[in-house]
Design a protein around this nucleic acid. Structure first.
Ligand SMILES: Nc1ccn([C@H]2C[C@H](O)[C@@H](COP(=O)(O)OP(=O)(O)OP(=O)(O)O)O2)c(=O)n1
Ligand SMILES: [Mg+2]
Ligand SMILES: [Mg+2]
Length: 1123
DNA sequence: ATCCTCCCCTAC
DNA sequence: TAAGGTAGGGGAGGAT
């Protein structure tokens, strides 16, 4: 039934043909001719912040002569967040720009399988005028959409015609299509683009600003997901707030524990359903069972509980007259007037159907049209999401009044560990089931079924057997025989795909499955899945209840109604969706550092979806980006997702689904999370029956206990005020702030610890998690050993909270301690100033106190490198920096004060230079490249005739090598010591013009300082243009295949890295430094170690200047030769 | 070996 | 019309 997406590689690079077909001479000529200008502008753009982000993610290559010149285009791109490629890069260039192309080029272009869009330069200029990225397809060079992209155009046309023929009554839709098609024609001629945008906006239903809200309001799947997550959270909250008392349980215990029949009568006021037979049938055996479990308390009993046809049951409360009929909940009415053959089948989905309907073969999730065919007298009722929530809440509250060993599964379903209850009440599972089922039925008017077993699997299977409105204990001795007769599809985790594969192995039932050897299953389905199948068909399930649910991701997606007319509407939608995700993150009080964009595009030959505005048959693509810091900021998320979107060169009109997921979440900053009151406000309980006194008590109990807990944490007063919400909220706010700090500080310590010995730490964690099977959190305390001795009690509390949320008991081995580098950085970046300062204090304190401290090492390294520093920009007289200098206002004085003098001065002089450099931009650059490295001083001799590339594999010619060595020695003497090895490998390198950077740089003897500087600039610019992954590979190559350091490499990489802070590319910088450190650490050559320290120092100066605090980077290199 | 990314699959 | 969301487990295959 389900249409599965074809697998398809999103990133297959099919543009090689194009690359090889291109004529490169144009490019080379142009480059040479304009070399000078390029350098000038590079200097400009390199240090200028873009004025907008219109072209984020766009990388153009200009082919041939264009009306705005290539240089002009480059400047425009850089000014507006785009990238200009001097070379066509197969993987990263997204668009080619040309005003005219010779016919031969067009031919070769069209031969390419997946050609780059070839656009007129007006695309750039018009986009800038419009202040947003316009659809490039309006600016395709060869006007003739019909020629270049015939399929698209014609498909749209055909679709339209088809629609007219088959669907005459859809007048509005047809009109829309008409408009769209006409517009496309208009677009081709590139006219009236404003009109175009306005009118065609109506095509896309996602254009409606309220679309997302409206969609989510009506989406049942959205509602059940949201509610499911909410109840998982809710159970966590209840558990946190629990005082260990369970009113329902207490009430049960007070009952005379003798006659089960008494109890049945006592609670069984309403139930006269057929399930009673089951109940009494099971009486004899469970009694025995119960006794057995009493004596040997090790046996656990799991209960699975699930509302019967949930949406229908709830809906029927308002339509009692429909009880007993086949009913379905769906959006469409499904009025099946007349014969069903000319009526178009409704594609509305049946969310839930009554058991009467199921007898006819109707199933949840089925299209209404099909359901009506199977069951012509099926009646539909409307959704009532509020009511579902109310009933769910009662369900959960009822169970929670007996125990909190609950794993929430969904809004109508959960697992419960009943062992304790049964033991304490001396009830059999059947008796207990009767009690709670009656309670729930009484309070909600809806029936519920329960199943019992010794593990989750068995309990679930028992529930299936019990439904509807029943209960069942799946005894150990019947497990095998019962399961044997089940279809494999009945096993949880076995869906369409697996059951399909199994049926190809001639396996239909669990009995069939039983005879398949485990290694066969594992080969077919993978290690774990195979083992799981092997176990399940035997009734074996070792999984524990997932108490303490911890969320791992937050996402929002819409795969309905997505019809974009162009890239802009897609971007607009992405922004809205980013806001949605951001809201959800904030509601959940969490932030994440990985953004994933999920896109669905219409498959190549897919017909129009059968479902109105549905997604139809699609290919799906995911791409994710790791951020440097955790975020919940919609602007950042929007920026990143738009970037990701732009990396897909797909027709925006083909988009059918969009989703944004945030993962790699940090632990919640505020340990208390939303209060219980929040939940109940959210839930707006209205129709809770009077008999909920139980719940009511529970509520107030929880609320007070919550407050008490807060007060304890605060260690301030003993007044347990009963209500006064005002003071409380203030208190809580303060409290949260305080806790936030504490937790962050703790984290710093912990992370530092883990950084020193990550493996050991992690293993210890895992082991602990294993040991601590239940939620005995105190077990974890030793791991998070204290940071400072002050306020130990407070700290313990926060530790507890922290670990509780960080380490779910049954997510063994999945979580690992975050890296100190990341965490600290995140902390510093995202925290308010006061908190940041506090952390920096701590930081400094640790520096002074602990010798083995990682950060101290960093400091001392900086210190050490001072000796080697060529202090040409030193201002010895400038002792006090803090309030004197405007340029320093951004530098955190606290941190600055702790810096070694030389760094201080360096920061200062750099800031000064920056301030002055309003004048010619090039000066600033010289400040960086010349002053800093002292390489191109006038007195230096010009370099000799040589040629080299950034690519590490190439060696320099002897002469050049010597020359650069001289320079280096005169400037940064010890650090860049070179071995005098090879004066060899001369000319043949000139043929190898294929560096990874595609840059071949000549060190011409006639070049002067300026030229050298420009060469450096060019190299740096190339690096800046390069995707981060490529740079990383460059660095890797550079380090691992060289025993000595080439200074041009060194200078260009260092300058490049030093530029990143200003470009706000901290994420990239961090990634690169991490890699650099890793590779250099492996090197046995001390000059590498020293060079690394020097690079880090250089970068930190830029960091301090830009951000006021340094980047947390690994500095320690384990080398005995160089300390 | 272990991690990461990009999927697929499943459940409600 | 119809409202095909969302979170998590896990596998394949590449990078480290
Ligand atoms: N494809 C699906 C499956 C379920 N649901 C919603 C409606 C269901 O009422 C609710 C609970 O799902 P269940 O699997 O528990 O199904 P029911 O409760 O409807 O029936 P059962 O008696 O089998 O539990 O989730 C849905 O909208 N779409
Ligand atoms: Mg149900
Ligand atoms: Mg259910």
């Amino acid at each position: 039934m389900a249409l599965r997406n074809k697998k398809k590689s999103a990133w297959a690079d099919q543009r090689k043909e194009l690359l090889y077909a291109m004529d490169w001479s144009d490019y080379m000529t142009a480059k040479k001719a304009k070399l000078e200008e390029q350098f000038q502008e590079a200097a400009q753009s390199e240090f200028a912040e873009p004025t907008s982000n219109i072209f984020n993610g766009i990388a153009i290559f200009v082919n041939g002569y264009t009306n705005p010149t290539a240089d002009e285009l480059k400047r425009l791109m850089m000014d507006h967040g785009g990238i200009y490629h001097h070379y066509l890069r197969s993987k990263t260039t997204t668009h080619m720009i040309a005003s005219n192309l010779p016919y031969t080029k067009i031919v070769s272009y069209r031969k390419a399988q997946n050609p780059l869009p070839l656009c007129k330069p007006e695309w750039i200029t018009d986009s800038i005028k419009a202040g947003k990225l316009l659809d490039y397809r309006k600016y395709l060079l060869y006007s003739q959409c019909t020629e270049s992209q015939p399929s698209l155009f014609q498909m749209a046309k055909q679709t339209k015609v088809q629609d007219h023929i088959t669907n005459n009554q859809k007048s509005s839709t047809s009109t829309s299509y008409n408009t769209k098609t006409n517009l496309k024609v208009t677009n081709i001629h590139n006219k009236m683009s404003n009109n175009v945008e306005k009118s065609s906006e109506e095509v896309n239903s996602a254009k409606n600003p309220e679309f997302i809200t409206e969609f989510y309001n009506n989406s049942r799947l959205h509602h059940i997901s949201t509610m499911g997550a909410m109840f998982k959270d809710y159970i966590n909250e209840l558990r946190d707030a629990s005082d260990g008392k369970f009113p329902g349980l207490e009430a049960l215990k007070k009952q005379p524990s003798c006659h089960k029949n008494d109890k049945v009568i006592l609670y069984n006021t309403l139930n006269n359903s057929d399930s009673e037979e089951d109940l009494f049938d099971d009486y004899s055996e469970p009694k025995i069972k119960s006794k057995v479990s009493l004596s040997s308390s090790t046996i656990t009993t799991i209960m699975h509980i699930d509302m019967d046809c949930f949406f229908v049951s709830v809906g029927l409360r308002k339509h009692p007259e429909l009880k007993g009929f086949p009913i379905a909940v769906a959006h469409a009415k499904g009025n099946k007037q007349g014969s069903s053959n000319d009526k178009i089948e409704s594609m509305s989905e049946v969310a839930s159907c009554s058991y009467e309907a199921r007898k006819a073969g109707v199933k949840n999730g089925m299209f209404l049209g099909k359901a009506l065919k199977l069951c012509p007298n099926l009646k539909t009722i409307q959704y009532d999401f509020e009511a579902y929530k109310e009933v769910s809440q009662i369900l959960y509250n009822t169970i929670a009044s007996y125990t909190l060993d609950i794993e929430a599964v969904s809004c109508d379903e959960m697992y419960v560990d009943c062992s304790k209850i049964l033991q304490e009440t001396n009830l059999t599972p059947m008796e207990f089931a009767t009690v709670i089922r009656n309670q729930i039925k009484e309070k909600t008017g809806c029936t519920v079924s329960t199943g019992f077993g010794e593990n989750k699997l068995q309990a679930r299977i028992a529930t299936k057997k019990a439904k509807p409105n029943g209960q069942y204990f799946l005894h150990g001795n019947e497990v095998r025989s019962v399961i044997r007769n089940l279809s494999v599809k009945d096993l949880p985790g076995v869906g369409y795909s697996i059951s399909d594969k199994l049926s190809q192995l001639n396996v239909k039932t669990c009995g069939d499955l039983e005879v398949i050897p485990v290694h066969v299953l594992q080969k077919e389905f993978g290690k774990k899945t195979g083992q799981q199948l092997y176990n399940m068909c035997r009734g074996i399930d070792n999984s524990k209840l997932n108490l303490e649910h911890v969320r791992k991701s937050v996402s929002a997606e819409v795969n309905y109604g997505i019809r974009f007319k162009d890239t802009n509407s897609a971007h607009t939608f992405l922004k809205k969706l980013s806001e949605e995700v951001s809201d959800r993150l904030k509601k959940n009080n969490c932030k994440g550092k990985c953004v994933t964009l999920k896109l669905m595009f219409k498959s190549k030959e897919a017909p129009e979806p059968r479902k109105f505005m549905g997604h139809g048959i699609c290919d799906t693509f995911n791409k994710s980006k790791n951020l440097i810091a955790h975020t919940d900021d919609s602007v950042i998320i929007a920026r990143e997702t738009i970037n990701l979107w732009n990396q897909f060169n797909q027709n925006p009109e083909d988009a059918r689904g969009i989703g944004i997921q945030i993962s790699k979440l940090e632990s919640k900053l505020k340990p208390s999370g939303p209060t219980l009151e929040t939940y109940f406000n959210k839930m707006e309980v209205k129709n809770v029956p009077a008999s909920t006194s139980l719940n009511h008590n529970k509520l107030s109990n929880n609320s007070t206990s919550k407050i008490q807990k807060v007060n304890i944490r605060e260690v301030t007063n003993n007044e347990h005020e009963t209500n006064n919400t005002n003071t409380k909220s203030d208190t809580i706010k303060e409290q949260e702030k305080f806790l936030e700090k504490q937790i962050l500080l703790n984290k710093m310590n912990m992370n530092r610890c883990s950084y020193e010995n990550p493996n050991k730490q992690e293993k210890q964690e895992t082991k602990l998690e294993n040991i601590v099977a239940t939620r005995n959190i105190s077990e974890n305390k030793p791991v998070a050993n204290s940071s400072s001795n002050t306020s130990s009690q407070l700290k313990q509390m926060t530790h507890l909270q922290y670990f509780k949320q960080k380490k779910p008991n049954n997510r063994v081995g999945k979580m690992k301690l975050p890296d100190i580098k990341e965490i600290d950085l995140k902390v510093l970046i995202e925290l308010p100033v006061d908190i940041r300062n506090e952390i920096i204090d701590q930081y400094k304190e640790n520096n002074e106190n602990e010798n083995s401290d990682e950060i101290l090492q960093q400091e001392s390294i900086i210190h050490d490198s001072k000796q080697n520093e060529n202090v040409e920009c030193n201002n010895p007289n400038e002792t006090l920096i803090i309030n004197k200098d405007i340029g320093f206002s951004q530098v955190d004085p606290e941190y600055l004060a702790a810096l070694p003098d030389d760094i201080k001065n360096e920061v200062k002089s750099y800031c000064d230079a920056k301030k002055k450099s309003k004048v010619p931009v090039k000066n600033e650059k010289q400040n960086m490249a010349l002053k800093r490295w002292n390489i191109f001083k006038p007195e230096k001799k010009p370099l000799k005739n040589a040629k080299r590339k950034i690519n590490n594999k190439t060696k320099m010619q002897g002469k050049v090598k010597k020359e650069t060595k001289l320079i280096v020695e005169s400037s940064t003497s010890k650090i860049l010591n070179k071995n005098e090895t090879n004066a060899d490998i001369p000319q043949q390198e000139s043929q190898t013009s294929k560096s990874t950077l595609n840059a071949t740089v000549y060190f011409d003897p006639s070049y002067g300082i300026k030229e050298h500087n420009e060469i450096l600039t060019d190299l740096v610019r190339c690096l800046l243009d390069l995707p981060i992954e490529n740079v990383r590979m460059q660095i890797k190559q550079w380090v691992i295949s060289n025993s000595e350091i080439n200074d041009v490499d060194f200078l260009s990489f260092t300058t490049y890295l030093g530029t990143l802070p200003k470009k706000k590319r901290l994420s990239d910088l961090h990634t690169l430094l991490e890699s650099l450190h890793m590779y250099i650490s492996k090197s046995t050559f001390c000059q590498w170690h020293k060079a690394y320290k020097k690079m880090v120092k250089h970068i930190q100066v830029r960091m301090l200047s830009e951000y006021g605090y340094p980047l947390m980077v690994p500095t320690f290199i384990d080398c005995k030769k160089c300390t």
